[in-house]
Design a protein around this nucleic acid. Structure first.
Length: 197
DNA sequence: GTTGCGATGCGCT
DNA sequence: GCGCATCGCAACA
């Protein structure tokens, strides 16, 4: 099922305007469909918290490309997280998809995450990718053509904002957005200091 | 609900 | 080598 052809134009605006527009949008991969409930904005070269802050590398190359593509990365030795690339081509901003509600394909999502409650199936960026079956191979996916597709809805009516989760290197900016009152929004954890081994 | 900590491997300095 | 846009589990409140 292809996405809407006007998606890239809708995502080409400033990241702080695009990020809240993704709340309530629908991310689909095969039979599993997620309604996005929580995101974070990353402002490319201007943002010490962004993977693109120190310039282009092989890993972050997709962030520098056109909007409407998926940037996937591997972290903590075992997890995949995904972002929606936004802003005009040549800039490097993106929106991390942090959490969502499964709205279709519940059985398959449960198979992929057998120990999670339904509320936790896509509560957290790595959990969301796991439930959707998104892997590193999906880095660079065109979100109109698929296999992963994004469909925007109407702008959300009740949006909350706060500091981003788990960053050590960046000053706190209120660039996390979520649907107020949603039970599927991930619990806030401030960045933890390093522990000795 | 909270806090503490180990798992795990790649990207980058 | 060091650090990481995390998670699941155990223990506690």
């Amino acid at each position: 099922m292809p996405g809407s052809p006007e998606l890239p134009a809708l995502l080409a605006g400033p990241v702080l305007e695009v990020a809240p527009r993704l709340l309530g949008a629908v991310l689909r991969h095969g039979d599993v469909v997620v309604r996005i409930t929580e995101v974070e904005a990353y402002d490319g070269a201007n943002d010490p918290g962004s993977h693109a802050y120190r310039g282009r590398t092989r890993r972050n190359a997709v962030m520098f490309g056109p909007p409407g593509h998926l940037y996937c990365y591997f972290t903590y030795g075992m997890h995949v997280c995904c972002n929606v690339v936004c802003g005009p081509e040549g800039t490097s901003s993106a929106v991390l998809v942090r959490a969502g509600e499964i709205v279709d394909g519940l059985e398959l999502a449960r198979e992929r995450r057998p120990r999670a409650s339904d509320r936790d199936l896509a509560r957290g960026p790595a959990r969301l990718c796991s439930a959707l079956g998104i892997e590193l191979d999906h880095d660079g996916t065109d979100l109109v053509a698929g296999p992963v597709t994004l469909t925007l809805g109407e702008p959300a009516a009740d949006v909350s904002t706060g500091p981003r989760v788990g960053l050590r290197g960046a000053p706190d900016r209120p660039w996390r957005f979520w649907l107020t009152g949603e039970p599927t929004v991930s619990a806030y954890r401030p960045a933890a200091p390093l522990r000795r081994r």
